[in-house]
């Protein structure tokens, strides 16, 4: 599904990614954990095209996508729910969701009817969003905005979903709700790459995990293997 090989990327002269490699198989949930500044977010941004990799390859279903415009990678089926949620504040909740489905909706008319089933699915998953459908997204609470960001990514019917720090800045109760949602999406077969500060919770939902340090993958394995790894235990699960 998604393969990252020896990826190098950075901002200006500072190189953040120094040869990252990872793989997300179809239907799997893969967690990417590590300290702040290890390059987790940059990995996601390099996959989705927001940062242009200087070296290395990103393969989606076997085809190279690195170096493409972000919009093109998104249209190929990568839905990136970015750090900080980045909902479109002045637009209504429902418009945000409709834009999530941009890649397979008609541009002018009839897009509402075409999106109806996807919308129902997201509203069923997040009833709160249905209540707030007409409200500007900028006025939603942090938790609601996170649900909107996940819902918006789902609307794309993505091949793979990139979730960057979905629990960031949320109250513990809401964090639990976010992880319940992720578990449910996993059960429905959504392929996900998950970046998380809460390594413990991330390992609970993941099928496989990578630990990042200074722009490279330091360790990898199944959650069970990582939980038994003394170093990982001390550094990230302590």
């Amino acid at each position: 599904m998604l393969v990252v090989e020896n990826l190098h990327a950075g901002y200006g002269l500072s190189e953040v990614l120094d040869g990252t490699s990872l793989e997300v198989r179809s239907g799997a949930v893969v967690a990417l954990i590590g300290a702040n500044g290890a390059g987790k977010t940059t990995t996601m941004r390099a996959i989705s095209g927001l940062v242009r990799p200087s070296r290395g390859r990103v393969l989606l279903d076997g085809a190279e996508v690195q170096g493409m415009e972000a919009a093109r990678i998104a249209r190929l089926g990568v839905a990136h729910s970015p750090e900080g949620r980045k909902v479109f504040g002045p637009l209504s909740t429902e418009d945000n969701l409709l834009l999530g489905a941009y890649r397979h909706l008609p541009r002018f008319f009839g897009f509402r009817a075409r999106a109806a089933r996807d919308l129902d699915r997201v509203y069923e998953l997040f009833p709160r969003l249905k209540e707030r459908r007409g409200q500007p997204a900028g006025t939603l609470s942090g938790g609601e905005q996170q649900m909107l960001a996940i819902g918006r990514a789902l609307m794309a019917r993505p091949k793979v979903m990139l979730l960057d720090e979905p629990s960031m800045g949320l109250a513990p109760v809401i964090v639990q709700e976010v992880f319940r949602t992720i578990r449910r999406l996993k059960a429905e077969g959504v392929t996900m790459l998950l970046v998380e500060q809460f390594a413990r919770s991330a390992l609970e939902v993941a099928d496989y995990a990578y630990v990042m340090e200074r722009g490279r993958i330091a360790t990898e394995g199944t959650p069970d293997q990582l939980r038994r790894d003394e170093r990982v235990l001390a550094a990230y699960l302590g």
Binding site: G49, A70, A71, L91, L98, R103, R107
Partner: peptide, 29 residues
């Protein structure tokens, strides 16, 4: 057209956040 079509909403989305618009598949360029 701006209010009633998806393209119009895409216009507004790009105006609001260029990068996030790109992530929806809307080419800012």
């Amino acid at each position: 057209l701006k209010r009633g079509t998806l393209l119009g909403k895409a216009f507004e989305a790009v105006a609001n956040d260029r990068d996030a618009g790109e992530l929806m598949g809307i080419s800012a360029t």
